[in-house]
Simulated scan of single mutants.
Amino acid sequence: MSHYCDTAPGHPYHGPYHDHEYGFPVCAENELFERLALEINQAGLSWLTVLKKRDAFHSAFDGFEVDRVAAYDDNERERLLNNAAIIRNRLKINAVIHNASVIQQLRHSHGGFHHWLEHHHPLPHGEWVKLFRRTFRFTGPEIVREMLMSTGYLPGAHRDDCPVQQRIIAAGPAWARSGGACE
Rank of each mutant, 00 (worst) to 15 (best):
N41E: 08
R54K: 14
K92V: 12
F24W: 11
V144R: 00
R79C: 14
A95H: 11
K92S: 11
F24G: 03
E21W: 15
F138E: 00
L131H: 04
R134Y: 06
I143A: 02
I143Q: 05
I143V: 15
G23R: 05
M149K: 10
L81E: 01
I143S: 06
A157F: 13
G112L: 12
N30R: 12
S101I: 10
Q42E: 13
F138D: 01
R133G: 07
F33L: 07
E146D: 11
G44V: 09
A43L: 13
R137A: 11
Y153E: 01
K53A: 14
S101E: 09
A70G: 10
G140Y: 14
T49H: 10
I143C: 13
F113K: 00
Q42R: 10
L36M: 14
L148D: 06
G44Q: 09
F64D: 07
R68V: 13
N82Y: 13
I87W: 04
N99I: 03
G23P: 13
P122G: 00
A100N: 05
G152F: 14
L123S: 02
F113G: 01
A85G: 05
L32A: 02
G140H: 08
F113Q: 01
H98K: 05
S150E: 07
F138H: 05
N82W: 14
F132T: 00
E34P: 12
E21I: 04
L48A: 04
M147F: 15
S150V: 08
K53F: 15
F24Q: 03
A71F: 14
V66M: 06
H108M: 08
N94I: 00
Y72A: 01
V69Y: 11
G152L: 11
F64I: 06
A56K: 06
S46Q: 08
R134T: 06
L123T: 02
K130T: 15
A71S: 15
I143W: 14
I86R: 06
D55Y: 01
N41V: 07
N30P: 13
H121N: 09
K130E: 12
E127C: 04
I87P: 00
A43M: 11
I40N: 01
R159M: 07
I97E: 05
H120M: 06
V69N: 05
G23Q: 04
E39C: 02
Y22L: 09
R133A: 14
L48T: 09
L80F: 15
L81V: 06
I93N: 09
G111C: 06
W47A: 03
A28S: 08
W116H: 03
E31M: 11
R133C: 11
R79W: 15
F136R: 01
H114S: 09
E78I: 13
T151C: 15
N89I: 09
V144D: 03
E39N: 02
V26G: 05
K53D: 12
D73S: 08
S59M: 09
I40W: 14
I97C: 08
G44D: 12
R88H: 07
D55C: 00
F64Q: 01
F61N: 00
L106E: 09
M147K: 01
S150T: 07
F113L: 11
G44K: 07
A28E: 15
G126Q: 07
T49M: 14
L51G: 02
Y153L: 05
L51D: 04
D67M: 05
Y22T: 00
N30D: 14
P25I: 04
T49G: 09
